[in-house]
């Protein structure tokens, strides 16, 4: 693959990642956020594929499949799947819309600022490396920060999970861009961790719904003392 094509493709997937990250912040609807997260998973998988082709690294192929399956399909599906159990009756509960602590405009401004911060803090890294992949590294850091922003500003348990996963995607992005990914065993372990956390939190949010009637994590304050 020629250098220019490679950098074009890296730029494309990194742009997609950043865009989806911003979308997860911006959307009020939880369904839309989850959809954006799924797209982000695909974009991450595409990034892995590009890196794999560029480095001609066979080991990255299973990683690509893993990322595609887990981040693109399984996790969004787990998040979106919400058959709630209320009492003994199985009822379908609509995913509530998010009412974030920060309004969308302020959130977008904050996301833009975080993007700048990410670019500023990764500047030494970008300056010292000629590779196109390293040049895209600020995107990963920005995703981490934006994911954190989602965690901080969202009330619903599921939205917080979305933020957490976006953050995790950001970490993975940085890893792939800078060093071509972590060893497969580590990647596998981390993915399993994320899956487990998501499943547990999913169960947990269902418990919250059963207890409080909704999944506003602010209600957890009542559990203090």
């Amino acid at each position: 693959m020629s250098n220019s094509v490679f950098s074009e493709l890296i730029g494309l997937s990194a742009g997609a990642l950043l865009l989806t990250s911003v979308l997860t912040v911006w959307h009020r609807s939880q369904r839309a956020s989850i959809r954006a997260l799924a797209v982000q998973g695909f974009a991450l998988a595409a990034l892995v594929a590009v890196v794999a082709v560029d480095r001609k690294d066979v080991e990255l192929v299973p990683v690509f499949l893993l990322v595609l399956a887990l981040k693109g399909l399984v996790l969004p599906w787990v998040l979106a799947r919400r058959p709630g159990v209320v009492g003994t009756e199985r009822v379908r509960i609509d995913i509530e819309d998010e009412s974030p602590l920060l309004n969308p405009v302020a959130t977008l401004v904050a996301a833009a600022l975080l993007g700048m911060v990410a670019y500023a803090v990764t500047w030494p890294l970008v300056a010292s490396s000629p590779s196109a992949a390293a040049h895209a590294a600020p995107v990963g850091v920005a995703m981490v920060l934006i994911g954190f922003l989602v965690l901080v500003t969202r009330r619903r348990a599921i939205s917080q999970l979305v933020g957490f996963l976006a953050l995790d995607n950001g970490i993975a992005t940085v890893a792939f861009l800078i060093s071509g990914g972590v060893p497969i065993l580590l990647e596998f372990g981390a993915s399993l961790d994320v899956l487990l956390v998501t499943l547990i939190l999913q169960v947990f949010s269902r418990q919250m719904r059963a207890t409080f009637g909704d999944t506003d994590v602010g209600r957890m304050r009542e559990l203090r003392d």
Partner: peptide, 24 residues
């Protein structure tokens, strides 16, 4: 330490940002 998860998350978030900025 008022029990709000958001506040606790905000602490970590602020800590990360501060560390990053200070490092630069």
């Amino acid at each position: 330490q008022n029990g709000s998860i958001h506040l606790y998350l905000l602490y970590s978030f602020a800590a990360i940002l501060i560390v990053l900025i200070v490092a630069v």
